[in-house]
Design a protein around this nucleic acid. Sequence first.
DNA 1: GGCGAGCTTGACGTTTACGTAAAGTAGACC
DNA 2: GGTCTACTTTACGTAAACGTCAAGCTCGCC
Lengths: 144, 144
Amino acid sequence: MSETLSPTASRERRTYSIGELARRFEVTPRTIRFYEQEGLLEPERRGQTRVYHEKDRVRLALTLRGKRLGFSLAEIREVIQLYDHAPDGDERQLRRMLDILAEKRRGLERQLEDIHALQNELDDVEDRCRDSLDALLARHSRDT
Amino acid sequence: MSETLSPTASRERRTYSIGELARRFEVTPRTIRFYEQEGLLEPERRGQTRVYHEKDRVRLALTLRGKRLGFSLAEIREVIQLYDHAPDGDERQLRRMLDILAEKRRGLERQLEDIHALQNELDDVEDRCRDSLDALLARHSRDT
DNA sequence: GGCGAGCTTGACGTTTACGTAAAGTAGACC
DNA sequence: GGTCTACTTTACGTAAACGTCAAGCTCGCC
């Protein structure tokens, strides 16, 4: 793995402005501020302007990935909190976390099934489509 | 495949009321009416009440699957229209349809990547979680 | 004929995830 | 010192996907 959300691993000193991040991920600054408001990002403040670090960039990437999979921002926040609090807590909390993880996994498994089902259906459409096209072209070449 | 959206394959004469469908798929009747309003379902009318056939049931299943994958109702309607119009149209239309199919496929491929990436991240969290738990239990058993 | 269960059509309300416009600030450059 | 660019906050607007009443029809049953 090339990157992680673990705070101990953010050893690069690169920072980003809100505009840089926005261009990089093809979202608007407004979106990034909104994600902060929703507790998904926690940029540093230098004066009154926001300064984003690697940790924020990785979180944003995770957020957008979650969005592409249809997760709500609330669900994504949950996952991020799993990340941030993975190593701590008492036994009960850790076991609860493992339960939540297992549940998330089941959700992903179902999404995999759904994708395969949809792929099969697209195959079906494509087959019929190609059949029609072949018939059309055969008729055309015969008529010349 | 056990079922398809192809109209020629709906040879079963089973019908459903809106309430039956709603219970089956764990949605509200309101949701089903809304999907009709959005052009995703086209139930028969018997008097003033709606009568749903196999075709509608399959469409509803497809719709909910799409939703679980984060598709908008507009996108799902596109897919359904692909189904309904797959075998017809002139050459240009058929080629266009194949292009659209290829694009949908690319979207699904990306979702697969996203899912695998998220699974890896959950693995990561789980590892750290288990490490903490093991350390906790080891300390506990040593202290007894 | 009254009554409940299930259906119908409106119509307005709500949540999520931002868009957009207004007005102000702060640093870089000429 | 003025202007440009990029940032800031505040606030109202909006599209999607339904939820939530309200009011009325209609069928079966006692």
